[in-house]
Design a binder for these strands. Sequence first.
DNA 1: CTGTTAGCGCATTCAG
DNA 2: CTGAATGCGCTAACAG
Lengths: 350, 350
Amino acid sequence: MPKLPAKKTPKPRPDKTRLALGLTLIDVAKVAGVSPITVSRALSRPELVSEQTLEKVRRAVADVGYTPNMLAGGLASKQSKLVAVFVPTIAHSIFSDMVQTLMDQLGNAGYQSIIGVTGYSVEKEESLLGAILGRRPDAIVLTGTEHSALTRQRLVASGIPVVEAWDLCEDPIDILVGFSHSAVGKAVARHLLGRGYRRFAVVSVSDARAVKRSVGLVDELSVQGVTDVRQVIYPAPATLKEGRDGLSQLLREGTLPEVVVCSSDTVAQGVLAEAASRGLRVPEDVAVMGFGDLSSAAQLYPALSSVRLDGARIGSLIASTLLERLQKQRDGQAPVRIDTGFDVINRVST
Amino acid sequence: MPKLPAKKTPKPRPDKTRLALGLTLIDVAKVAGVSPITVSRALSRPELVSEQTLEKVRRAVADVGYTPNMLAGGLASKQSKLVAVFVPTIAHSIFSDMVQTLMDQLGNAGYQSIIGVTGYSVEKEESLLGAILGRRPDAIVLTGTEHSALTRQRLVASGIPVVEAWDLCEDPIDILVGFSHSAVGKAVARHLLGRGYRRFAVVSVSDARAVKRSVGLVDELSVQGVTDVRQVIYPAPATLKEGRDGLSQLLREGTLPEVVVCSSDTVAQGVLAEAASRGLRVPEDVAVMGFGDLSSAAQLYPALSSVRLDGARIGSLIASTLLERLQKQRDGQAPVRIDTGFDVINRVST
DNA sequence: CTGTTAGCGCATTCAG
DNA sequence: CTGAATGCGCTAACAG
């Protein structure tokens, strides 16, 4: 007789006011007059249950106010229905748009999202990943393709579907949904050269993707015979201050360029503000080029041109790509690589 | 002999490449040469374990690359270490600032946050709550004090600590961290009256808190003898368009007011844009009053005045209040009500 | 300070 | 279509 005299305290459950969240499948099952597993099925796979028992269960669930415990469900099924989304910040519309759209569409498919704000730091990304992996997310969405060695390693070892967004690269971890920042830089160069500009300057922050754009720009300009491009670089994140300081710096160190290419709309707005306070006309005295989603305030400024992105569209693309991957849960390593593209547009005054 | 012949399939675990996330406490315990519970303690309550066994465990954890499964941990301990945060949107700096600060500080205390974007809709809030309650969050932060009846009911029944932020009210669900929007409206009225304005107009969206501010403004103006305040109201959310349309509407329906009070900086910027495109000078021809955090683009505009809030500070206040509450896990119903206050400031041009 | 025993609430096999 | 048994991985109690 192995062990039996255990039933001393039958059930010391805190059965006081019977909080709604303390209810279990068993409670619902009793009320519905079925077995617990039937309740489980009725809730998660209704197609396996007859219409009438379904009805009984639904009624019971509503009556007692039952809310399934996803911690238990996740543990048993090994599916957390959670997606981790890492972004540098949610304070820029380009990212908040993406995040909102992504969360929304994943939500419609039954997935909740947990956001990690990395602040443009791979170290922060790494530590956040460590914390979030404990929740066993069903998928992870990252911004950019630069990660710490440990981050990459843990990601591939985890076997979790990973999306790297906002950039392209040769050796993605898994899925890639982005565009070439180098191509953006080159396109901007050609666009501005085509409009007759020859004296360029750059005001940029030093995040990985912004740097790629600057390099693309300078390379293309160089190919076309424009070689001395002054650059002012600040650490991320970008605020208006970087733009104002950037233009000031350029003026201090030399003559006014014909056009200032900025790493983002935020920086561009700073440049415009500084220009305005110095009585410089845009684009007559100095043209300004931005990069962003042309949303909210940015569209009010008379920046000459801009690279336009659609954060919501990118979020949508990520969602659909990911959901498809999550459907066929096989590790069918169909390498996915989506180029979202971008637009170079003119916007002259309001 | 109850049942014994069960040990048929000893362990059909998918022990293939042994994904790092497939490891358990038991694996670590074996390597460290201790019992599983000791590993558990070493990880979550190190003060209960001797320094040397701690070291052994740490080494083992690092060696095998173990990541604790919080689903299992949460199920067993009834602590998810999750905080749900509901905001109308993350596309406004005032909320994104708050969210980032809140997430950050909660993160430092070992809590992760899951964001719900309600889009100013109590229905959306209700459905999101239903989904998120399944994760058994340790706390819930809501924006505003208006919720559906069901939302309130589930919240109180859940027994989970709840923070209602950004507003004050008489019957909070639990904890309250906000300020009086009515008082904001009144303060704005007095401020502008004090500067000599008499002909007012309002351009606002119809979210609950904005409405309270408008009402406060109109009430106070009325008390001071200013009675005919024209109001243009749009559905939330606010974009620049609401501001532009609002001013157009005002001009179409009557003469130019001396000052336009806007429900947010976003609306104010729209008004300013429309004014600019009509050649109106601000504040000479028409003054504009905003409401927001004076961050980013908003600070560039020559709005006459503004009500200033600090999203980060509010996030910080929420975090500390909540963490204190989470510490003493008693349901020591010390009713907490924090008035964060606000500032009415002038900003004449840049 | 460390180990043992017993679930947490659910979903996955299988039977019926 | 429904039910029974079993364990997901961890931690709360107790023992020692």
